[in-house]
């Protein structure tokens, strides 16, 4: 078997892997019970999926332009995904878009409850906690 054929097989395999993980991410959005769990599905399998697709592209066109673009795409994924999931998760929690029944333990609620209690006992301490 000559080298380009091997490359084609590897790229094809990577594309299938990428498609599989992206599909799993979509399925997770349907199957998970609440918004916070769905954030996991939206932020993780698709990173690996995208990475495999980009790797396949780089293997097919191994030029500097393509490689640097792929690295940049990955870098910005890694930088923006945590920020966006954090913002959505935080907003969801504060607007109470979460299923309490889907949580075994919630240490954030305990902290907020405690903060609320001290604030009601001491109204002089100011509003925004």
């Amino acid at each position: 078997m000559n080298w380009p054929v091997v490359l084609d097989w590897v790229s094809g395999f990577l594309l299938i892997i990428g498609a599989f993980f992206s599909f799993a991410a979509g399925l997770g959005l349907l199957r998970f019970p609440d918004l916070l769990s769905r954030l996991h599905s939206a932020s993780k399998p698709q990173v690996l999926g995208l990475a495999s697709v980009l790797l396949a592209v780089v293997l097919q066109y191994p030029t500097w332009g393509i490689i640097t673009s792929a690295v940049l795409v990955m870098l910005f994924q890694m930088m923006t995904i945590p920020a966006s999931t954090h913002m959505v998760g935080r907003a969801a929690y504060r607007t109470k878009h979460l299923k309490r029944s889907a949580l075994y333990k919630d240490e954030l609620a305990e902290v907020i409850e405690k903060a609320d209690r001290t604030r009601s006992e001491d109204p002089g301490s100011g509003g925004n906690g």
């Binding site: 997770g28 199957r31 019970p33 399998p45 075994y104 333990k105 954030l108």
Partner: peptide, 17 residues
């Protein structure tokens, strides 16, 4: 995460820590 998505019982509960 993919395994948790695909496994039959899914993800019934999580926690905030």
């Amino acid at each position: 995460v993919t395994w948790m998505i695909l496994r039959p019982k899914g993800v019934p509960t999580s926690s905030i820590g």
